[in-house]
Design a protein around this nucleic acid. Structure first.
Length: 139
DNA sequence: GCCAACGTTGGC
DNA sequence: GCCAACGTTGGC
């Protein structure tokens, strides 16, 4: 099983929206590196859901439902793909970009250096570290 | 709102 | 095939 981080601008498509819909096709990826990452996804893989710009924090987790398939929002014959993802659950406490930058385990995620990559692989250790930080409740 | 990073486009 | 111009993303 593999672990991923997905980025979305909450004003475009938020984690709350994903929770409401349950499952959604993760379409519209038009970057070749991100596409390669989508192609490596398999059903059952686990994803962290990051809100870029408004938020700048990891807010929840999702699971990959399908293998990669041609993105229906792309021109026929184009190389772009998508997968269906399902909301799993929100973090009790979002993990902020600042926390990520300060954490020895998390600061090596591509999110920090490759700020424009929207689908990126992470390690099991990083996934678990975010869950651990996300369990802490704010006072 | 600004700007850095970076991908894409188009002229040559 | 090079590179300047331009558009987009996303942190600050």
């Amino acid at each position: 099983m593999a672990f991923w981080l997905l980025k979305s601008e909450p004003e475009v498509y938020s984690f709350q929206q994903l929770e409401k819909e349950g499952t959604t096709p993760w379409t519209g990826i038009r970057n070749h590196q991100a596409k390669l990452n989508l192609l490596a996804m398999r059903p059952g893989d686990l994803c962290l859901y990051y809100h870029s710009r408004e938020g700048k924090e990891i807010v929840g987790t999702a699971t990959v439902q399908t293998p990669p398939y041609p993105d229906p929002t792309a021109e026929a014959g184009s190389p772009w793909v998508c997968v269906d993802i399902t909301a799993q659950g929100p973090l009790a406490q979002p993990v902020t970009l600042q926390q990520i930058k300060e954490d020895v385990v998390l600061q090596t995620m591509p999110l920090v250096r490759h700020t424009r990559l929207s689908v990126m692989p992470i390690t099991a250790e990083q996934f678990n570290r975010v869950l651990q930080l996300g369990l802490a409740r704010a006072i």
